[in-house]
Amino acid sequence: MPDPTFAQPARSPILPLLIAAGVLALIAAGVFYFNPHDTASLSLSNTSVVPTQTTFKSQSIVVGEGASTQDDLYVFTTLKVDDHLRLPITINTITASLITGDNQESATSAISKSDLPAIFIAFPKLKPLAAPPLLRETTIAPGQSAEGQLVFHFPVPKSTWDTRKSATITLDLYHQTPQTIVIP
């Protein structure tokens, strides 16, 4: 009786490696194609810039010290946020930054809903511009959108706004990258 041999012919590992690489490439292409490429899209509408001026009477008894004035600027804009993820997104903070013509940066947070009545009492001409606000901690369901008004206060005169280099709004989201949009 002949001795059994268990020898196998030599095989090249190239074919199984090519098949595995092809399957992994198909999986990666599917993940890339079916997952959204951006977290959210932002769009602005109804932007209004309102200058205000406050005159302070001087309480000083120093000769030559009179009343002083302060110029402020309120920016009202409506922001729409569309969620492109398959997860809900939640707004953490909403900020705006202004870079003036002489490269000075001024940053501010959106005025909170509880502070708006005091501003409308101090500056009654701002009240007609009011609309439902977009609030911090707003959660947007997957594939849905949220829209609301944002109000920003900058302690600059209107001429500074008119000669600005840029003005942007940054929406900081929990667990996602911040989203930024330019104020027209």
Rank of each mutant, 00 (worst) to 15 (best):
S114C: 07
Q59C: 09
L73N: 01
D72R: 13
F120D: 01
F123P: 11
D71R: 01
K125Q: 07
I111Q: 06
N46I: 14
P117E: 02
P117D: 01
G66W: 00
D115N: 12
D82C: 07
A118I: 09
Q53E: 01
P88R: 12
Q104N: 11
V62M: 08
S114L: 10
A107R: 12
L87H: 11
Q59A: 15
T52V: 14
S97H: 14
F123C: 05
A96W: 05
T55A: 02
V49Y: 01
A110H: 12
A118L: 03
T55I: 07
E65V: 15
L126W: 01
S58I: 05
K57Q: 14
A67W: 06
L98P: 10
F76A: 02
A110S: 12
S106W: 12
F120H: 14
P88C: 05
Q104F: 09
P124M: 00
T108H: 03
F76W: 05
T108F: 00
K57L: 08
T90D: 03
Q59N: 14
S109N: 13
T52K: 07
D83N: 15
F123W: 02
T55S: 09
F56P: 08
V75S: 01
I94V: 15
V50N: 07
R86M: 08
Q70V: 02
D72G: 12
V49H: 05
L98D: 03
S68V: 09
F76M: 06
P124W: 00
K125T: 09
T93V: 13
K57P: 12
L73F: 04
P124A: 00
E65R: 11
L126C: 02
A67N: 11
T52S: 02
T100C: 07
V75H: 04
F56R: 10
L87K: 09
D115F: 03
S112T: 15
A67F: 06
G64C: 11
Q59K: 10
L116G: 07
I119Y: 00
K80P: 07
G64W: 11
S109G: 12
S109W: 08
Q104T: 15
A67Y: 05
T47P: 04
T93S: 14
